[in-house]
Write a protein that binds this DNA or RNA. Structure first.
Lengths: 212, 212
DNA sequence: ATAATTTTGTTAAAAGATTGTCATATTGAG
DNA sequence: CTCAATATGACAATCTTTTAACAAAATTAT
């Protein structure tokens, strides 16, 4: 996907979902074309950076015209891997696990939650939006019988690594981790750590900073 | 707090909560001292970067010895503004709002949730862990009578900016935003945008990338 | 008590990211 | 059809961040 198989920096990748958000808004508002200048004003970036970013993946624009919103959005979806669907399971049916299962927004982007797992007998057998909560003991069995692409870890932090190990040992190649530890995964497996509290602490840092 | 009032870069700030996490783990394991080298191996950073980071805020270490874990942790807590408490409200008592209200972990760090607000009549009057859900109409009234430091926005995205405006108009200086838009705030107000889906899309980008 | 080892804080160098500039292509107005 | 305006893609310059190197200080071992 990258322009000539060359390396694309972390910073650029992290901006791609943001471009996607803004382009989706533009498309919904019926805007057909957009220049890097206009997009830069909306997004609070420089026009130069936007052009540079898109050019990491190939030239999607046209001189004198700008970028076609729908085309560009489609390209970014391809880049982000949003041109396919993903089967997802959630391990840990506590607060976050349940909230994610209840949220219907990810389905629109192609992420389908197929099951939840927990060790709490009170939760096992229940379902959320018709998604069953299974005993964590049956995790390996389930993974063998169902093609799952992504696993969410929303367990307490002291169980997260153990769960990650079981997931990767059974073929999971993508982990979205909400536990407050960085999980280690073998080469070839992708782990995205969320760390909500890091974000809260950054906020409190800035509040503190703004006071002196 | 910064070494001599000088600017500390975004990149350094974003690493601080991570240091805090690792230092807390070390302290809990009874480790008394740690060198930048050992910490670097645990955290997957370079020792040089760790020393450089800490020196943005003043020298907390000692040559030949390293860093005292408890002292360093305490310093980082001060830097992050975790040496005080914060009163928090949550606007939007849907999936994420409820999950955050149910989660007890933030209290340990000094963040106390005082109220939730929603427009759904079925939710208004209920409570979560003894935290009342109020009518959003009473937001201004509540903010006048209670000293609130931080507001969480967990509304649908089309309501987020309007809520942010009402919050900042009534004295809120810190916003933790979970809605899928970047909220704009006036100077002097800090907004931390979470964007869970950005994180999920980064994961799908990497999965896609790993396939070719 | 002394020497070898450890390890910081600092400075310098290297690497990486962002911004500015400009030639060139396209559009749109007259 | 021609000309001015627009806007990209590429490259160069600047700025930021990370890594490396090292002198100085403290610790540890003998």
């Amino acid at each position: 996907m990258a322009k000539n198989g060359s390396y694309v920096s972390e910073a650029v990748i992290r901006r791609m979902p943001k471009y996607y958000r803004y382009l989706e808004d533009l498309e919904k508002s019926g805007v057909e074309r957009v220049s890097s200048k206009e997009l830069s004003q909306r997004m609070g970036l420089t026009a130069s950076q936007i052009r540079q970013d898109f050019n990491c993946f190939g030239g999607f624009g046209q001189q004198g015209y700008g970028y076609n919103v729908s085309d560009l959005k489609r390209e970014i979806m391809k880049i982000l891997g949003l041109d396919r669907t993903y089967n997802v399971i959630i391990v840990g049916a506590g607060n976050i696990g349940q909230a994610l299962a209840n949220y219907t927004g990810f389905e629109k982007e192609g992420f389908f939650i197929k099951a939840l797992f927990d060790i709490n007998p009170k939760l096992i057998g229940m379902s959320i939006r018709d998604i069953m909560i299974y005993d964590l003991d049956s995790l390996e069995d389930f993974l063998e019988k169902n093609p799952i692409d992504i696993a969410v870890i929303s367990t307490p932090k002291d169980k997260a690594q153990e769960v990650a190990d079981r997931l990767t040992a059974n073929g999971i190649r993508g982990i979205w981790n909400f536990a407050a530890v960085d999980v280690a995964v073998p080469r070839g497996v992708i782990a995205e750590n969320v760390h909500l509290s890091d974000s809260l602490f950054t906020l409190s840092f800035r509040i503190r900073e703004s006071l002196d």
